[in-house]
Amino acid sequence: MAAAAGGGSVPVTQLTVEQLGHVRQTTEREIEMLMTKISELNVAHQKLTASRECATFMGESSSPQTVLVPLTTSIYVPGVIQNPSELMVDVGTGYFISKNPSDAASYFSRRMAMMKEQLDKAYGVLNQKRQLFEAVSHLLQNKLEAAQAAQAQAGAQPSA
């Protein structure tokens, strides 16, 4: 299916109406999947940005900081950050690494760059798929119109 959508060996112009419809459908589904992936990546990117900003902020304040610690979403207790220069960074699969704020910020920057790379790739593929979708839709429309015209002509001829 994916190979057909990619148009590897058979030129798109030689496909039948059914095949075109099929390609159109798979491409549409692929576009939807890509859009979901892109929005997920964007959310992840935003979270990383927030974390990086927080790390940078912590780096700017070396003295103990007072904060409100949430016990639940509606109960808070005052707390003091004794050592704002040591942050625990969640690096995935349950591992936390202690980092100073600038290292933490650069870690988040690196992760953001990776996200950006993936996003760019996804956008590239999305554009390709959109173009394919447009082309196939256009072709399908043309073929259907041609078939209709031929039918109308064939219907008109006996009476003429």
Binding site: M88, V91, G92, T93, G94, Y95, F96, I97, S98, K99, Y107
Partner: peptide, 27 residues
Amino acid sequence: LENQLVAKELDDVPDGTFVYKLVGPVL
């Protein structure tokens, strides 16, 4: 892929860095 990222992170950190593993509710 996720484990690979973690492995790289652990490799890049200087020796003696504190590392914690989340096991249930505790680190």
